[in-house]
Design a protein around this nucleic acid. Structure first.
Lengths: 154, 154
DNA sequence: ATCAAAATCACCCTAAAGTATGAGCTTAAT
DNA sequence: ATTAAGCTCATACTTTAGGGTGATTTTGAT
């Protein structure tokens, strides 16, 4: 508790202590008659100087650091394909249809796709027909081309 | 010249002027015998307080703002297709074959390509067959996929 | 529990794609 | 001039793709 208070207000406490110490110092010197002959202006100047420094130090410690935000534009190659979910929703392609579409884009024949997905060739034909309908194309090459342009597949 | 010097060092000049002004003020008050009875501690305290404030103000004015560099990632439509001439040479695709390949990639049927290039369907079949041979694939979708991966076409 | 969409499969038929072979013509290099 | 490569086209054939229709089963949401 006391420690955290010290840490949080260290600057203020040190400043107060410095102020007290300086006054004590001046008093002590006055009492000693050592520099009593010094001009008032010197006292004032020295005090002003010292406390200016203290003020500067205090300000630097306390003040929220001024942050100047500099935006550095970094060009990021968008190799990374960003899937257009909105387009998918709009076109209403089902999960299975997307699978078939992706495999078509990979150059697989309907027979290949059927084997890969463990379904019959006829099933793939049905799926691909629906894909063509929804993409409003007639051939698989058109479907792949359009799907890529629509960011449905990489 | 003088103006820019003023702008650059305004803070310091104002500080110096303030210091001088305060000393003059104190001297003037002393001369007037108005507050000559006030204690030395009061002078010191007031001076300390005022110049602390000045120091704080000075510091806040002078302090270099901490520059925080924020990397802003800008997605760039990377039309960074760099045609791989070496691959083309290696595979030995002719100009006409590249044309056909490109049109295949655009989703055109053999008949479409034939009409576009003002040649017969059979000619396109011959060309596409040679393309498949050279790309070592069996179907046009595979050819397109491979050609894209090889940076032969965008 | 019910209903709609999705997924599965079949059959038939047509269109398109792909394979194989041969051949005429043009062009660029040797 | 000869040659090789490229472009063109044809015929015949096989394979794959695509369209249309209908049906059953799964699944997800209300």
């Amino acid at each position: 508790m006391a420690l955290s208070f010290w840490i949080k207000n260290r600057s203020v406490l040190l400043y107060s202590a410095s102020l007290a110490a300086l006054l004590f110092l001046i008093k002590w010197l006055e009492w000693r008659f050592i520099i009593v002959d010094y001009s008032f202006e010197l006292y004032a100047g020295a005090t002003a100087f010292i406390f200016t420094l203290l003020g500067v130090w205090l300000a630097l410690k306390i003040a929220k650091p001024k942050t100047l935000v500099v935006e550095k534009h970094v060009l990021v190659k968008t190799n990374d394909f960003v899937f257009d979910a909105a387009a998918l929703t709009r076109l209403g392609l089902s999960k299975r249809e997307m699978e078939v579409l992706q495999l078509m884009a990979d150059g697989l024949s309907n027979q290949d796709i059927a084997e890969k997905l463990f379904v019959s060739l006829n099933t793939i034909k049905t799926h691909s027909s629906k894909v063509f309908e929804k993409l409003e194309v007639q051939r698989r090459t058109q479907a792949v081309d359009k799907a890529k342009k629509l960011n449905l597949i990489p």
